[in-house]
């Protein structure tokens, strides 16, 4: 087995040895482990991309609200301002990324079809960042696939070294992981080296360590969807910093170890149980009562 990896260090070494990018390595990894051709693997990623695209397109046009009525229609609001950037402090790329991420999050909350990339709760960041930036590059779809493969490789390293489950690691494992994955994917799309991709991922993930999973009423709605939107800004920022020459003082593999350590000592109340944090605020408890859930803590 020539292309198998579990850590960033292994990825960087393999990329050097074969003179390939992270996305190419990810493709060969998958081809090798599944026995399928790289063309076949690429086709499957294309279909994944198409589902993401569909969710974005539906989401930015939709006024549908989730069953509890907590979310819905925000993607449309944001997207409407895409050409009035004089009003907006960020730029078109970041605004569009937030609109797309929100679109996917809202589709998910309304029980529509999405790609769990890496999980459903954090499914907005990767399409938000990658689709918006590739539109900016006028890159077409090929580059987008590169970003997706690279992001998947980074997600795989997090799954191996820590976790992608909020029930085990809180929101750092969902939105945090997605932000790190997107930062790396974007960095590769704009021509960064494998090392630079991991610097971007490390800078992004460090900023999300310890993030609690505390959704209102346990629903993947509040704060989840807006966390995905804001996560796009963080991913783009981390990638920009790296392109400016900034590096992460702590290597990515060590950041993943730290994430795992935090997951181990994090209270179960902050791990998808809706027993702490935002879930037990006055508003959170109001939602719980509406759902007929037990209110355990009053702040």
């Amino acid at each position: 087995m020539e292309y198998q990896f579990k850590t960033a260090e292994e990825v960087i070494n393999l990329c050097k040895k074969h003179k390939i990018s992270i996305s190419e390595l990810a493709k060969r990894y998958e081809s090798e482990r599944s026995g399928k051709s790289t063309a076949n693997v690429r086709e499957r990623m294309k279909r994944t991309r198409d589902v993401m695209y569909e969710a974005i397109q539906k989401g930015i046009k939709s006024n549908e609200r989730s069953k509890m009525g907590m979310v819905g229609g925000d993607a449309k609001k944001i997207y409407k301002h895409i050409n009035s950037t004089s009003k907006i402090m960020g730029n078109k790329v970041t605004l569009r990324a937030m609109a797309y991420a929100t679109a996917v999050g809202e589709q998910n909350a309304c029980m529509r079809r999405i790609v769990a990339f890496p999980t459903a709760g954090g499914s907005g960041v990767v399409p938000g960042v990658l689709f918006s930036c590739s539109e900016h590059f006028k890159a077409g779809k090929r580059k987008l696939l590169k970003g997706m493969f690279c992001a998947s490789a980074v997600g795989l390293i997090i799954a191996e070294g820590a976790t992608l489950s909020a029930a085990k690691g809180g929101c750092q494992a969902e939105v945090g992981a997605a932000v790190a994955m997107s930062a790396a994917g974007l960095t590769e799309m704009r021509g960064g080296t494998p090392e630079q991709c991991f610097h971007a991922a490390a800078i992004a993930l460090k900023s999300y360590l310890g993030l609690a999973c505390d959704p209102l009423g346990g629903l993947v709605e509040v704060p989840c969807i807006k966390r995905n939107a804001i996560g796009c800004m963080a991913a783009i920022g981390a990638s920009d910093m790296v392109i400016c020459g900034v590096t992460s003082f702590i290597p990515f593999d060590e950041v993943v170890q730290a994430m795992n350590n935090i997951a181990e000592i994090m209270s179960p109340k902050l791990r998808e149980t809706a027993l702490g944090g935002l879930a037990v605020t006055k508003t959170g408890n109001m939602i719980k009562r509406k759902l007929g859930l037990k209110v355990t803590t009053e702040l």
């Binding site: 499957r44 999405i114 998947s152 795989l156 992608l164």
Partner: peptide, 25 residues
């Protein structure tokens, strides 16, 4: 996780929301 993971465990699955662990799983 000991078993070797697929790239498409990360980039996927395609699913009906809202939660990969609580709905799809």
């Amino acid at each position: 996780m000991s078993e070797d993971l697929s790239i498409f465990d990360i980039a996927g699955p395609v699913m009906v929301g809202p939660s990969s662990s609580h709905t799809a799983g």
